[in-house]
Design a protein around this nucleic acid. Structure first.
Lengths: 126, 126
DNA sequence: TGGGTATAGCACTTTTTAGTGCGTAATTGT
DNA sequence: ACAATTACGCACTAAAAAGTGCTATACCCA
């Protein structure tokens, strides 16, 4: 079944949207990586989410999956041609995020941004 | 409370992610629009989702909300400086989506892209 | 015999996101 | 009197996304 979109951005977001996909793709921009490397690069992701998102990206023709027939298993992921065509967008998404944050921690390169937790408070809650 | 990110794209996606935000922002790229105009431009969005997403975008400093003191109400939304800094990204998200679809319907400018509904079927389900 | 390895599947629960239905305001036109 | 208008809040439900815990594989090594 083909799904219908009204505007291009809708289709794009369906592919790179969600909590993990854009992050995974950013890590694959310049290197082929195996599952365990991605897991180390994105510590908070669970094994399940990682492989699940990679499957979906594969199904959408964004990443290649290369399985080495050995034990223990070795599986490498890389961007397809179509995946590479997202690089420019991914770079800009990274840059914009870095430039639009309140603070950056020196340790671990982590980044902060004002979050929505502090809105919609009634005066008594403040 | 400030939230911590490990990579820029994470912060960006938190702002433009979700089902509606990027779409709303695309419509605001070149024009100030009132609520009802946005609703007409994005027919499938519900009133609640529209105002909710606009609130969050406002809280994140992406859109301006201008309330005219009149009845019936008139409220206009436009991009802030920070919101306009997303224009380049939004344009590319639109373009990429348009270029990476299987088919485009002439009526209503709607777009199709292979969807995940047709994967993971067991042979008996096919 | 049993532990470690790397990847991933499965059933299940929790959390997050989105959708529904209904109520309100202040004024205009019938 | 009363409906229409426009934007939006609220309580609630439904659906989608993410997280947990456990299992398997097949080979190496102590």
């Amino acid at each position: 079944m083909a799904k219908t979109y009204n505007i291009g951005v809708e289709a794009t977001m369906e592919i790179i949207g969600g909590k993990w996909k854009a992050i995974i793709l950013c890590h694959l921009r310049h290197a082929t990586m195996r599952t365990s490397e991605l897991k180390r690069a994105i510590p908070q992701i669970t094994q399940k989410m990682l492989t699940q998102q990679l499957r979906e990206l594969e199904d959408d023709g964004i990443v290649n999956r290369h399985v080495y027939e050995q034990v223990p298993p070795k599986v490498e992921y890389s961007l397809t041609k179509r995946g590479e065509s997202l690089n420019k967008i991914l770079n800009q998404l990274c840059t914009w995020g870095e430039e639009n944050i309140d603070e950056r921690r020196s340790e671990g390169e982590s980044i902060e941004l004002r979050h929505r937790d502090d809105v919609n408070l009634t005066p008594s809650q403040q």
